[in-house]
Amino acid sequence: MKSEVIERLRKDILAMEGFKLTDESKRLKLDLGPMTAAFPGETFPCGAVHEFLSATKEDAAATTGFIAGLLSGLMRDGGICLWISTRRTLFPPALRLFGIDPEKVIFIDLSKTSDILWMVEEALKCEALAAVFGDISEIDFAQSRRFQLAVEHSRVTGLIHRYQPRNMGTNTFVARWKISSLPGTLQDGLPGVGDPSWRVELIKIRNGRPGTWVMQWANGGFRHSRRRAAATAHKPLQKVG
């Protein structure tokens, strides 16, 4: 009885804070395990912009893997995704491992960084897309607000990968993630490298609870590992320049 009241009040507060639950059709169709509890309303915030930080090439690859996992959930019913970047090293066949048809991803490869903000914003305004990935290192508050306004209207999910960002000012993104790779888990004695395994840090989440989890990608879905999240020492984000 009491818990029901609290639950209802919580939802009211979320609504007052301007948080809008996405309708059923646009939700992430992917089981994120215990991570779901961290999100507002216990649903992964679609129709918002997420940022992912990475400092090294290895972390960038891990982040790409995690993003590809999320994208597979967003593109499940035949949606198209735009992948906007300047120096793309993504190898399209690898997306197949994460359950994405590589031909459903349209790559926008730019030579100048100046156009990328315009391109991402324009893409976020297009409601026909399932998701937009952008490789943007530097972004200021004003531009992040433009992104936010765009997705509020179109309900497109934006995933921004920030590789070696120089300044980490405030922005309007709904969540800030940091993914790093972890040694794979295999039963003792078995050779090989096993499934991809990541330490997923949710540094910031609006209306939610930040946390750290260990996630694996196996059999076309995320698998939560009960292994201690702090398996590797936490390294603060490397400042460059």
Binding site: F91, R96, L97, P102
Partner: peptide
């Protein structure tokens, strides 16, 4: 069809 039986890296150096 895309080949999936063998592992391929997400980032491939040019």
């Amino acid at each position: 069809a895309w080949r999936t039986e063998l592992p391929r890296p997400v980032h491939l150096l040019p």
